[in-house]
Nucleic acid binder design. Structure first.
Lengths: 195, 195
DNA sequence: TTATCTACTTAACAGTGTTAACCTTGTTTA
DNA sequence: TAAACAAGGTTAACACTGTTAAGTAGATAA
């Protein structure tokens, strides 16, 4: 295994276990039996390393979603499955999920924006599904791309509230998730008989 | 003005202008013409100072929402206004908004959880409105508290995607917001004629 | 053999949060 | 009046942080 890979593995491990704050260059290097400066031979700086981790995390999430796709099902069913999978993945790998939203482009000015564009390819996956649904079934889809982002945003919101421990202790988490999914999906269904 | 207030003002200014990363104890102290250690006479540590800022930010957001309440309007109208106000506030004061979600309780173990409970009082404001709506009008409200959190989560998701610059450049921001609000509100309305 | 390239190291810079110990000042108490 | 005390600040230091410039050992190529 190359040192580059080892750095990625070790830093991911630290990041997931102890969070970003504890992920220091010297600590990573130490666990690779190497000096901190060696990391700079493989990554431009800490942001660069972080970005590599972000890309990996997004890829993992994307894979989790792709695995669950089933074109034989109706679009609304697929959306529900996607929603559940998204939330489930995020709650199962909270630290890894949060990496995705950890950094904003403007805070990494050194970084080419195209890197962040890759990140968006996952949205387009969603967009395709929604678009197809809009054509074939009764989904309320003005612009599939916007709808994809809307869905994504709402899912992220739900996850975010839970992960940030902002949920009231009186509310059972499962019930919250159920109701949220219910609400979110409802937004996509066309009312059969508009008043 | 007491030093404590001055510290709060200065650090908020730095936080809003340069972000959390640039907000260092020595920098804050310097602008107050004081040594860094003096801050520790008024705040337990940096987290404590941050928490004070979080509380202020939440209070601001809460005030913005309260100002816009209008019981003479229908509940669904009120929800729409609240949604718009929430998003508008967040986009107008992005740094301040993000402070609210910056820290998780578990990352501030020194901190009493009751502090974070205060934070939640704003949710309850929303919950009340939704509950009243559920009783009087056709709002789909199983549990008003859960509905409040669901609404909150979805709004935060929308804001989060925009602030994190994750929105596709092909999507006009206004259009995204409109569609998102549309989707979110739809989740609360009871279908008149269920199939 | 000499030169070059690769992968690493050492040493250092400038910055961070935080603490212990000290000093001044004004107020309270004997 | 003298002594004790507390409030609000200071200096110096510790143990970290990301990052860079310069140096070094070892393999490879001319």
């Amino acid at each position: 295994m190359s040192l580059r890979e080892e750095i990625l593995n070790v830093s991911r491990e630290i990041l997931i276990k102890d969070g970003f704050g504890k992920m220091s260059m010297r600590k990573i290097a130490g666990r690779c039996d190497v000096t901190a400066t060696s990391i700079y031979l493989h990554f431009k700086n800490k942001d660069d390393l972080l970005l590599a981790l972000i890309e990996e995390s997004i890829e993992h999430l994307k894979q989790a979603l792709i695995e669950v796709l089933d074109p034989s099902k109706s679009m609304i069913e697929q959306l529900e499955i996607l929603a559940r999978t998204y939330i489930e993945y995020a709650l199962k790998h909270p630290q890894e999920y949060e990496v995705i939203y950890m950094v904003r482009p403007e805070e990494m000015p050194k970084y080419p924006k195209e890197k962040f564009r890759d990140v968006r390819s996952t949205y387009e996956l969603l967009a395709e599904i929604i678009q197809t649904g809009g054509e074939n079934e009764s989904l309320d889809v003005k612009s599939s791309l916007i709808s994809a982002y809307t869905l994504w945003a709402q899912l992220h919101g739900v996850v975010s509230v839970i992960l940030n421990k902002r949920l009231d202790t009186r509310i059972p988490q499962d019930q919250f998730i159920e109701q949220a999914i219910n609400h979110i999906l409802k937004g996509f269904v066309i009312e059969k008989t508009p008043a």
